[in-house]
């Protein structure tokens, strides 16, 4: 369906000529990639290799390390209940916050992409929470809003509902963290908005000639053209969510509490490395995380052939 619309719309004589550009461009590519390659070799690969090495040692930061083979990995899987707890917390966080945040961001982006008066103001307003980022003020702010006698509970009390402390009750604390992450949906929204700019208006014109409804337009034009950007957002939000650290750190005062209910994987990793002087163990955790994220990314890339539409016609 969508493919039909696209080809109909393409100006005549501009059919794809893949074969023409199929020669190698090693030299020019090297030129464009040179800063990145330099950074990779000089700044990135070294530290990555070092951390991989540390993952097989008992490195404590403060003194030199000793090779201990797979000890860190076996401890992690067999004798560390907090490791399992942090995995659990992180998985819930990823699978709840990422879809919510992206749907919210896409909905608002679509709403704001239409010609509404005062658009610039709205866009800015919706972005302001994201500007706060990981500011230290957030911790106080969030408690004031969702704490035991916070704003939300005072409003609820007016209608006679007695609510728990959403931030410091271990049953809900993770969800208040998820809410915080969804609240800061601005970055995804911006990426969606700039993606929406890529949808050429004549696609819509052509479709309205065809008599497609609004829903049809969204499904057959907006979504396909936006799919590379959606794909990007899904991948990046998943990776960032897996690594999520700052908000949990600030709100729980660095503890991951109460009762480890907000002990995100990266927070635990950080504590192991810097507070408990087990950088070797932390490095091992980091590489387990890389494997985990890598697995999810591979799955997403695999699925992308089914739903991501590139204007350059794939590779």
């Amino acid at each position: 369906m969508s493919a039909d619309l696209m080809t109909v719309d393409r100006p005549a004589g501009m059919k794809r000529r893949k074969t023409k550009l199929r020669y190698n461009q090693n030299g020019i590519a090297l030129l464009f990639l040179s800063p990145w390659l330099l950074g990779l070799v000089c700044l990135t690969l070294g530290p990555m290799a070092a951390s991989l090495y540390f993952s097989f040692t008992d490195y404590s930061i403060l003194e030199s390390s000793r090779w201990i083979g797979l000890d860190n990995f076996t401890t992690m899987l067999t004798a560390d209940p907090l490791f399992i707890q942090s995995l659990k917390v992180t998985f819930i966080f990823v699978f709840v916050s990422v879809p919510l945040k992206l749907m919210f961001a896409l909905a608002v982006a679509l709403l704001l992409n239409k010609g509404i008066r005062g658009l610039g103001i709205y866009r800015t307003v919706y972005y302001i929470p994201t500007l706060l980022g990981g500011s230290v003020a957030i911790a106080m702010l969030w408690r004031k809003m969702l704490g035991g006698d916070g704003l939300l509970n005072q409003l609820l009390a007016m209608v006679g509902i007695q609510a728990p402390d959403w931030v410091s009750n271990p049953k809900y604390s993770l969800y208040s963290l998820i809410l915080l992450s969804v609240w800061q949906f601005g970055s995804s929204m911006i990426i969606f908005l700039s993606g929406l700019k890529q949808v050429p208006p004549e696609y819509y014109d052509a479709s309205s000639v065809d008599g497609a409804g609004k829903v049809g337009q969204f499904l057959h034009i907006t979504l396909p053209v936006l799919s590379p950007v959606i794909f990007f957002n899904v991948i990046m939000q998943t990776i960032t969510a897996f690594q999520s650290f700052t908000q949990a750190f600030i709100i729980s005062n660095g503890s991951g509490g109460p009762v480890n209910s907000t002990l995100m994987y990266s927070l635990y990793l950080y504590k192991k490395g810097f507070s408990f002087f087990q950088m070797g163990y932390a490095s091992a955790m980091a590489w387990v995380l890389v494997l985990l994220i890598g697995l999810f990314t591979l799955l997403l890339f695999g699925s992308s052939k089914l739903w991501v539409h590139y204007e350059d016609g794939g590779k």
Binding site: A139, R143, G147, G148, D165, S168, G257, P258
Partner: peptide, 10 residues
């Protein structure tokens, strides 16, 4: 209570 305690910071 547990909640009030958990809400205390340093």
């Amino acid at each position: 209570t547990a909640e009030v305690t958990a809400a205390m910071t340093n």
